[in-house]
């Protein structure tokens, strides 16, 4: 027991213990300094930047300062940095093979941040997921969907797939697909649609609404009517204009037909037998 205490006292008095203490203190200072300096930097110049850049600045400065302190701490422990960097190269290859997915996500994350196709606060759509971007991290992008679910999408997926940013431009186009009966006068239909768009204050006057005759459909004349709206009012316009078109068509007796099926027996067959049913009530 006495021997243990003697060894401990010797160790504490040795230079190595002093180096370890200094390294630990350096790392601790590094953590605090990185946090303080990155926060201070954000407060000083962060106001002039958008969320995305501010986040990049904060994380970049944090990790840079931390790495500097870590390197000093290693130096303090007597590591030869050139040897260490060489070993790090070999180590990186080994880790790279072992963690291909993570590395791929990491690199994709760097590209995503540089490309800036969306930033924090934007609403994006990837496949069937639509949501607001909460964070763009090194490995993944975090989304909040409109039904309030937290979705984590790996950066690799984002780089490989089609991403739609819904909040990039201030105005959006709403495409209304509708069908009218074959008997209707298309000029009248067009005029009624124009009047509805004109009366709706959310529908932009310019760019002008677009009327496209799509096809002679199976049961209807298929029309696309596209109107523009301010991005924030898109949903409001979508709800109001469909209702207004329906009301205007009802007022003007324009029919939106249900699918029709005409049953034809062919020229060689006899006509369908028809049975007349009397509606008179029995006595």
């Amino acid at each position: 027991m006495n021997e243990f205490w003697a060894d401990l006292v010797n160790f504490i008095n040795s230079e190595q213990a002093w180096n370890i203490t200094r390294a630990v203190i350096l790392i601790a200072i590094g953590f605090v300094a990185a946090k303080l300096i990155s926060s201070a930097l954000l407060k000083t110049v962060g106001d002039k930047m958008d969320n995305h850049r501010a986040m990049l600045l904060k994380r970049g400065s944090y990790y840079l300062i931390l790495i500097l302190f870590l390197v000093s701490a290693l130096h303090q422990l007597g590591f030869n940095l050139s040897v260490l960097l060489g070993a790090a190269g070999v180590f990186t290859v080994a880790v790279g093979f072992a963690s291909q997915t993570s590395a791929s996500n990491l690199i994709s994350g760097l590209f995503l941040m540089a490309e800036r196709s969306f930033s924090i606060g934007d609403v994006i759509r990837i496949g069937t997921t639509t949501g607001e971007v909460l964070g763009i991290d090194l490995l993944s992008v975090k989304l909040r969907t409109f039904d309030n679910l937290f979705v984590r999408i790996p950066n690799e997926t984002l780089i490989k797939s089609e991403v739609t940013t819904l909040t990039r431009f201030p105005i959006r186009r709403l495409d209304i697909l509708l069908g009218v009966a074959y008997k209707e006068d298309l000029k009248k239909v067009r005029a009624v649609l124009g009047e509805v768009a004109n009366k709706n204050p959310l529908c932009l006057e310019e760019p002008k609404p677009l009327y496209i005759f799509q096809a002679f459909g199976e049961s209807s004349l298929d029309i696309q009517y596209s109107v523009w709206a301010k991005r924030e009012k898109f949903l409001e316009l979508k709800n109001s204009i469909h209702e207004e078109i329906k009301n205007a068509f009802d007022e003007q007796d324009i029919e939106i037909p249900f699918p029709h099926r005409t049953i034809y027996t062919g020229s060689a067959t006899a006509p369908f037998p028809i049975q007349s049913v009397s509606h008179t009530q029995p006595d």
Partner: peptide, 8 residues
């Protein structure tokens, strides 16, 4: 008066 929006 409720004015309609437009893009210019």
């Amino acid at each position: 008066q409720r004015l309609s929006d437009t893009w210019f």
